[in-house]
């Protein structure tokens, strides 16, 4: 566990961060920088030449047809997929094969999956405590205390000692969000967090995400919840066939899309 200068920098963040979040979006620093990013699966080009910058505290909603590379793109932000060309820099750390960089980035970036991926052999509480204890070496009592606070924050403190199979889908996803937050990440990635949920459970998860966005978390959300996007997103990114087709504020995307393909897709889903 190399304590790199980057991670030391981020521990100083809270004071800094509050100040930065006071600034309008355009004046904040870039927390994610992608330049000419490509990814192939065999001969298939899943992500082609994507360049974008995400500001600290920004909420970016990514949408597009299935197979458009949007999931692959956010999975590259914490290197669940490797990019094969181009540059990705996360909070000043260049994404390389260097294990120390990778460790540092994984500490910065939390991820929530479509299928929750909670560990079924551990209680909700232990799911949340695992990474702080094993990766950050937080003492048990401290980890437990903050895990309980997180469960409180996502609204299910009474489910602490239940196993994932005993929870509803919405509750599982909220535990999964708490689990990712336990590592105190700077950035949260959401990969279709509500797609596996019943309609009445979607709201409880979106409420947690709204609260998170309001707290100033940088969020990249792959989702088709257009109501959520309109209300919460600072910008929206439309992906099609692996390429970033259009990037702009919700007002532009919904009311005045610059690309025909964006308009076509929105016509189909709205």
């Amino acid at each position: 566990m190399a304590e790199t200068s980057q991670t030391n920098g981020s521990t100083d963040m809270p004071a800094d961060k509050a100040a930065i979040l006071e600034l309008p979006l355009e004046q904040r620093d870039d927390i994610i920088v992608c330049e000419g990013v490509h990814k192939w699966f065999g001969d298939f080009c899943a992500v082609r030449d994507v360049s974008m910058r995400v500001k600290r505290g920004e909420v970016l909603v990514i949408f597009g047809p299935s197979g458009s590379g949007k999931s692959t793109f956010i999975r590259m932000i914490n290197r669940l997929e490797e990019h094969q060309q181009g540059r990705i820099v996360v909070d000043g750390i260049e994404m390389t094969n260097d294990v120390r960089n990778l460790d540092a980035i994984r500490r910065e970036v939390g991820m929530v999956f479509q299928q929750f991926n909670l560990f079924p052999h551990m209680t909700a509480l232990n799911n949340i405590m695992l990474a702080p204890q094993r990766v950050r070496h937080t003492p048990r009592d401290e980890a437990q205390e903050s895990a309980l606070q997180l469960l409180e924050r996502v609204g299910i403190p009474e489910q602490a000692n239940k196993y994932p199979a005993e929870l509803s889908g919405g509750q599982q996803q909220r535990v999964a969000i708490a689990r990712a937050l336990a590592m105190q990440p700077q950035i949260m990635l959401f990969d279709e967090p509500t797609s596996a949920l019943d309609p009445e459970m979607i709201k409880e998860v979106l409420d947690v995400m709204r609260e998170l966005a309001a707290s100033g978390m940088t969020m990249l959300c792959v989702t088709h919840e257009m109501g959520f996007a309109r209300e919460v997103a600072d910008r929206m990114a439309f992906f099609d066939e692996g390429a970033l087709v259009e990037l702009g504020p919700p007002s532009q995307i919904f009311n005045n899309p610059q690309e025909d393909r964006t308009q076509l897709f929105l016509d189909q889903i709205l």
Partner: peptide, 29 residues
């Protein structure tokens, strides 16, 4: 499920930690 390993990696667990804490206990069960 492969999602288990992905979740563990995304949380920053090392390869051997993922095996010992996540994959092996579930596999044995």
């Amino acid at each position: 499920a492969p999602g288990q390993t992905e979740a563990a990696r995304a949380l920053g667990l090392r390869g051997w930690q993922t095996t010992l804490l996540i994959t092996l206990p579930q596999g044995l069960r």
